[in-house]
């Protein structure tokens, strides 16, 4: 039990970054499926909305787990914020039936994913 407690406390941010990365990949899959006509619009928009909410929640978690002045917190939170904004854009695009807006949101999402990976690598990866 002690060991379990110890290892789960090793990386809340690590866990949160994983959730964020997985959520953004979910958003990408849904956008692709919608663009290919394989996912109905109401499903795609509900999924993107729920993904965006999950990402906002992850950002809030990271904020509460780290002191406000820490630079890693700022960068990771920024990247996660970009992810959720992109997911919301994509949702708006899906609801408007606007393929261009969705593909733009997809690019934003890709860029934010790269930012998150970079921030994550910079601050957390070398530890292990």
């Amino acid at each position: 039990m002690l060991a379990l407690a110890a290892c789960s406390s090793s990386g809340p941010v690590e866990q949160e970054s994983k959730i964020a990365a997985s959520a953004s990949q979910t958003a990408v899959m849904v956008m692709d499926a919608w663009a290919a006509g394989a996912a109905p619009s109401n499903y795609a928009s509900a999924t993107l909305q729920s993904t965006a909410e999950a990402l906002v929640e992850v950002g809030r978690q990271i904020e509460s787990d780290n002191p406000p002045e820490s630079p890693k917190r700022r960068e990771v939170v920024t990247a996660v914020g970009q992810l959720s904004a992109a997911a919301k854009d994509a949702q708006a695009g899906v609801e408007a039936g606007n393929l261009r807006q969705v593909s733009q949101a997809r690019q934003e999402l890709r860029a934010a994913t790269a930012n998150l990976a970079a921030a994550y690598a910079k601050y957390f990866a070398p530890k292990s």
Binding site: S22, Q25, T26, A36, G37, A38, Y43, T51, A54
Partner: peptide
């Protein structure tokens, strides 16, 4: 696809969509 955390039921139809398209849904 890099979706490693299934904690939202909205993710589940994505199991079959890439294989069968709309019919997968």
């Amino acid at each position: 696809h890099g979706v490693n955390q299934v904690d939202d039921y909205h993710q589940l139809p994505l199991l079959l969509i890439p294989i069968f398209g709309f019919w997968g849904f």
